[in-house]
Amino acid sequence: MNIFRLTGDLSHLAAIIILLLKIWKSRSCAGISGKSQILFALVFTTRYLDLFTSFISLYNTCMKLIYIGCAYATVYLIYAKFRATYDGNHDSFRVEFLVVPVGGLSVLINHDFSPLEILWTFSIYLESVAILPQLFMISKTGEAETITTHYLFCLGLYRALYLFNWIWRFYFEGFFDMIAIVAGVVQTVLYCDFFYLYVTKVLKGKKLSLPA
């Protein structure tokens, strides 16, 4: 555990909690892509099946349980409790265009052709693109609430910090996981455009709105 890994995890946790609190406090999930949230729930579910097979640390187990619990709570708020506020018309990204290729790729390129390992690989690939429905929704509506941009920033920062974590681990532990690294780079790159807007607009007190 190094500082990049820890701050990455905490950034991820912050993102998840920001989103939950935003929906809970405003009693609304307007502007939030339910599809991205379902994908994240699927990501955690398929990745953390090792909760049943191996124990790594109390920290690891607790964080996994919190991530999974929050992911399902978010999906529940969007599709059940505050369903009336869900903006389904703008959440029109076709998720099968992500899930099907990602499923195929995880069967083809993995560390080990076993069910758990393929599901882990699937979750890594899927996570790298799971935010696309959310970014698509923002590009469609042309704007995002400031709190939503904080959520996205923390979520993007998390994977960027993981990249530094992997550099650290490569130098000091000789450890690297090519699947995680390549997917992590892809994931981080997808946020670059958003990072630029966040720094140039949101941090200067302006609302994030895209030119028409």
Partner: peptide
């Protein structure tokens, strides 16, 4: 068969 891979990251 090989030892199952352990993914210690989140």
């Amino acid at each position: 068969s090989q030892e199952p891979l352990r993914h210690d990251e989140l």
